[in-house]
Design a protein around this nucleic acid. Structure first.
Lengths: 208, 208
DNA sequence: GCCGAAGGTGAGCGAGCGCTTAGCGTGCCC
DNA sequence: GGGCACGCTAAGCGCTCGCTCACCTTCGGC
């Protein structure tokens, strides 16, 4: 059996690590509800209903509604960081690694837009402690991209005026894909990934 | 007297068109509350309290809480469209007009991040009719940017593979500024505008 | 000086919220 | 096959929500 499964929207949802089964069903239901209506507009009754359970069942597996968001956010950010790290640490020129990072990061945001939307846009609904933990993961994502840019500048591949600002812009561009991407639109996640990799290489002065 | 005033955060808020005075105070209070906590997490008691009025006073000037969001959204999108149109229709090369559009659009999203955050990220909280009206305004924003790109391609200034995708990416990059920009950060709105104008010119193959 | 319109308030309604609790069925251990 | 831990449900508590309503002030017109 695979650790990934498909939701109704054709997305890949790697929630295999969440056990037991009832806890995973509740978490998947919460991701869908949060993505559709936002954290504050989602009720615990709605989450439990989507998972085919009574409202009280939620509290057997999670202490509060916020704990659900926290778990989703941590798993999502960990996955995002892993994607960037894999691309950053592979072999190849800085341009190849940057293109790989951007295209795979964008593919994740487009293909898993339901999860990505929750992960990227519901951060402010977390309490201070949980938010601090997630913000630390974000800074690591930032560091991975900045590292590739610095490598490319050192090797003469890239021409970048403001490393910090360009890093932010690259990540911002990728993240915002989750906001506008639709599976009914004219592009597949792969196509957006390829388009964005090209745009980013141009931004750093590395286009052929 | 000017039609623009300053909020506590040093932002420009052109709400002079909203009358009478009590209605404007309520609207400004709603913008701040929605930006801080999101539409659904904001209570009508909070909005009225910020405006120094009782909860019931809100309903003298607005039929529902959603009408407040609708008015804010329409005014904000109209202003955004006006900014893009002004840049698009001035004289100059396509590169100059694109740089102007991006830098002024970004300045608006950074300087008026409170308003921009509500305008750009609370769209889904509107009902179907109101949302349709706002989406139409967005499409006009899209058309302005695409128009500049097509002019630049026709004149040979730009080298763009996918006009539709690049238009979307340019707008996405600018809009997302409202999500991450902070007045306490290392940049002024002007600096981000200049940085982004440079990045976008590179994206369309027009950098010097 | 009386009157009605405009703009405000305090109290509170019905609904729905996050979450709790008492108790029920089921399978596992001995 | 009796006891019990576990996963779950039905019912509902205390609270706060968006919104309403009866009433109060202020003020210009005559």
């Amino acid at each position: 059996m695979s650790t990934a499964e498909e939701t109704a929207g054709g997305e890949v949802a790697p929630w295999g690590e969440v056990t037991p089964d009832a806890a995973r069903r509740l978490l998947v239901a919460a991701v869908e509800a949060f993505a559709e209506r936002g954290y504050h507009a989602t009720t615990t009754r709605d989450i439990a209903g989507r998972a085919g359970m009574s409202p009280a069942a939620l509290y057997i597996h999670y202490k509060t509604k916020e704990e659900l968001l926290h778990r989703i956010s941590r798993i999502g950010h960990t996955k995002a960081l892993e994607i960037l790290r894999t691309a950053s640490r592979r072999e190849g020129t800085a341009a190849e690694r940057l293109a790989d990072a951007v295209s795979s990061f964008v593919r994740w945001h487009a293909g898993g837009r339901t999860t990505a939307r929750v992960v990227q846009y519901e951060l402010d609904s977390l309490g201070p402690d949980a938010r601090a933990e997630i913000v630390a993961l974000r800074r690591q994502c930032d560091a991975e991209v900045r590292g590739i840019l610095e490598d490319g500048i050192a090797s003469g591949e890239f021409d970048v005026l403001d490393v910090k600002g360009t890093t932010l812009a690259v990540l911002s561009l990728c993240v915002d894909v989750a906001r506008w991407f639709s599976i009914d639109g004219p592009w597949t996640p792969d196509e957006v990934g390829a388009l964005y990799a090209d745009l980013v290489l141009r931004m750093v002065g590395a286009s052929k």
